[in-house]
Design a protein around this nucleic acid. Sequence first.
DNA 1: GCCGTTCACTTTGACGTCAAAGCAACTTGG
DNA 2: CCAAGTTGCTTTGACGTCAAAGTGAACGGC
Lengths: 171, 171
Amino acid sequence: MSGTVRTPLRRDPIELARSNWIGNGWSDAADGMALVTSIMRLQQVFLGRVEGVLRPHGVTFARYEVLRLLAFSRSGSMPVGKIGQRLQVHPASVTNAVQRLEDAGLVRREANPDDGRSVLAALTPKGRRTVERCTDELNAQIFSLLPISLAEQRRAFRALRGIRQAVGDFA
Amino acid sequence: MSGTVRTPLRRDPIELARSNWIGNGWSDAADGMALVTSIMRLQQVFLGRVEGVLRPHGVTFARYEVLRLLAFSRSGSMPVGKIGQRLQVHPASVTNAVQRLEDAGLVRREANPDDGRSVLAALTPKGRRTVERCTDELNAQIFSLLPISLAEQRRAFRALRGIRQAVGDFA
DNA sequence: GCCGTTCACTTTGACGTCAAAGCAACTTGG
DNA sequence: CCAAGTTGCTTTGACGTCAAAGTGAACGGC
């Protein structure tokens, strides 16, 4: 969709919605609506950019996150269920991602010797090379180039972390 | 998935990732990574909550946004292309949403008398009743109850708006 | 007045996400 | 020690999103 918006809109559509909210007597919800909507929109923007960087490497953001997590782990492998907990995604999504990563030769499935129900996902050498390259590009092209100051990034992060904590994302 | 996370994680997984970033010498990208990841995660959380509120009304968030936009318009109708621009979503997504809203009797498609290529989506009375009920519930159950102060909501909104503007979301 | 281009929308296909159901392995109470 | 319940993962189905291709209407230059 990024490529579809020919002309940037004159006025911020979220400010417009906020005005409409206030005009309808919903002032007490206007700021929350604006914040939630902003988050929705930015997720869409960032996801598009991130996938643009990752596409040449043949991975999506969901799969990159799995690779990244495995690369940080001591052994380079982890039970599928634990991946889901750490990334906070549905088990079915992890199954899907690991399946495709395995098809691409970036990950190998192994039996868990400690638990016959569990499946380990293990990084292959190719997977490790891929994740390092992807990380370098994401850092260089996106994460280190956000168009607001570091101080503002940290402030925004802290505010959002407050929400995440309050909704029970972590203790 | 909300219902799938049994136990909140001990430590914030994003803080963990941030530590790993710094430990790997990617300090200049760590804050950006943390902010982007937070946005991704919160989108998931809020989308889940919003859809939970809307589900009993038989609409999804994507469809609700279309209804809400139409309800704010003078005539209660709008070309589908303009809907896509205002909501900043791909034309195919609008086609999809309008199709399902029409199937549910919440919207009617009409020819645009001014342009034979264009299709108008027009709110039906049932659509208008639905969107008002949905808005009331979203306001009461989500937007007016965010677990950070109004001041923090506004600060976070402004920081995120700065990003949205910088990436060309609006002029 | 025509032809080529642009524009508005739709269709198709790939992908990720969640919910719910299914299955096999592990655990627990009696 | 076995039946009942729980846990870890997979499968299936519905939905939204984007990219790319397709269709038909409108426009613009000659």
